[in-house]
Design a protein around this nucleic acid. Structure first.
Lengths: 211, 211
DNA sequence: AAGATAACTGTACCGAAGTACAGGTGGAAC
DNA sequence: GTTCCACCTGTACTTCGGTACAGTTATCTT
């Protein structure tokens, strides 16, 4: 990788020891004195003051320095602020006082065109979407699975995710015909008439009505 | 970095030349033959068949292989599909036929805990993420109705309860034909393919994918 | 050995769902 | 008046979902 130039922007313009440790050649700059320089930094680290909103600050910085990749550093990181930062097109978000090795990792990721999303935000995102996409890890509490064979349960879960018979067939490596067999069995065992009702039941919106 | 084990999942199980070039030790696997192996791969590359939805496919793969980091490869990349992929907790999304160096870059970023996200998509992803959880719950659960006419909303709600077209027609005192008209409009406006997806969205189990 | 159960497959049929044509009405806005 | 939009309807077509026949194979029980 080419030599990266790191520039830390903050209210005071200081360069914390950890930053220096991570990037010995890093330079610091005050927000107020930020101006075009040659050669331009490859990565901007923006230490967010407590009382400032992310979007306006980044907008101002971009006006002054041009559209460079920015990583937001927060003294008190929290997920909502992280979201704000990414909304403002930041490339990363992490703790102001993160370890040097960590900072280097972030720089690496961002330098290669990626986004650095903090562990906890990542987890939240994954969990939130997991709730949406893979409905229940806890079908245990649900009675719907009780009388279904393992295969039928797989099919029922796939239906609950919105899969078509063809997709289920491919997913399970069986023919569409066989999928229909299982679907039919699930319909009868749950006492409903179509796959939509299966989806509602598996997703916990309806209760099954045993025939 | 520890030796990474790359596994390419696709319909055919083949390993394209570029993939092999990027990761000489990569192995290929069919979706249908995917199964736990030791040692587990560190990164899964999932080549998405054109006619398959992302979420069910990844869900299926995770059921088979456990919750491993996945990068989605698309033969015809587009933003909506990418958004779907990240909603399904993929760690990256890129072109199936990307150059070897590019793939290694993606792997690097993902391996260090980052997400590989195309520039144009960042904004949309953040918005989608924000819609999913952070904002007041009411807003997100009602967003589906935003661009629907009153009549279309009635139909959408009826579908969400599992009603058939005929039942909806009776309930609203109109013909089945007209119900189909409204259903078609809802499908298009929510960007989904069938009524089951409508039900999932209205019930807050999935987010709409703006066309 | 006989029976039960789960899983799988094939051909065929029917109705529901969804789409593509092609319209007609009433109200609100310009 | 004209234009736009929501709402409504009809015929015809394709695809998908679900069911009804009729089987095979493997495993486990009695």
């Amino acid at each position: 990788m080419k030599q990266a130039r790191h520039c830390f922007l903050s209210e005071s313009g200081e360069v914390l020891a950890r930053w220096q440790e991570a990037f010995p050649k890093a330079v610091g700059m005050r927000f107020t004195e930020a101006a075009q320089s040659r050669p331009a930094p490859t990565l901007l680290w923006v230490r967010l003051p407590q009382d400032r909103a992310v979007a306006p600050l980044l907008a101002e910085i971009r006006r002054r320095l041009g559209n460079l990749p920015c990583v937001v550093l927060s003294d008190l990181p929290d997920d909502n602020q992280a979201l704000e930062s990414f909304s403002a097109a930041a490339k990363g978000y992490c703790n102001t006082h993160a370890a040097a090795a960590f900072l280097r990792q972030v720089a690496e990721v961002v330098g290669q065109g990626g986004l650095w999303i903090g562990e906890s935000l990542m987890t939240r995102l994954v969990e939130a979407t997991a709730r949406i996409e893979s409905p229940p890890p806890m079908e245990s509490s649900d009675s719907w699975a009780a009388h279904l064979t393992p295969r039928e349960q797989e099919v029922a879960r796939a239906i609950a995710e919105g899969a078509s018979n063809k997709e289920i067939a491919r997913g399970l490596g069986i023919t569409e015909r066989t999928v229909k067999l299982h679907v039919g069995a699930v319909l009868e065992k749950l006492g409903v008439r179509d796959r939509l009702q299966i989806a509602l039941i598996v997703n916990g919106i309806r209760q099954s009505q045993p025939a």
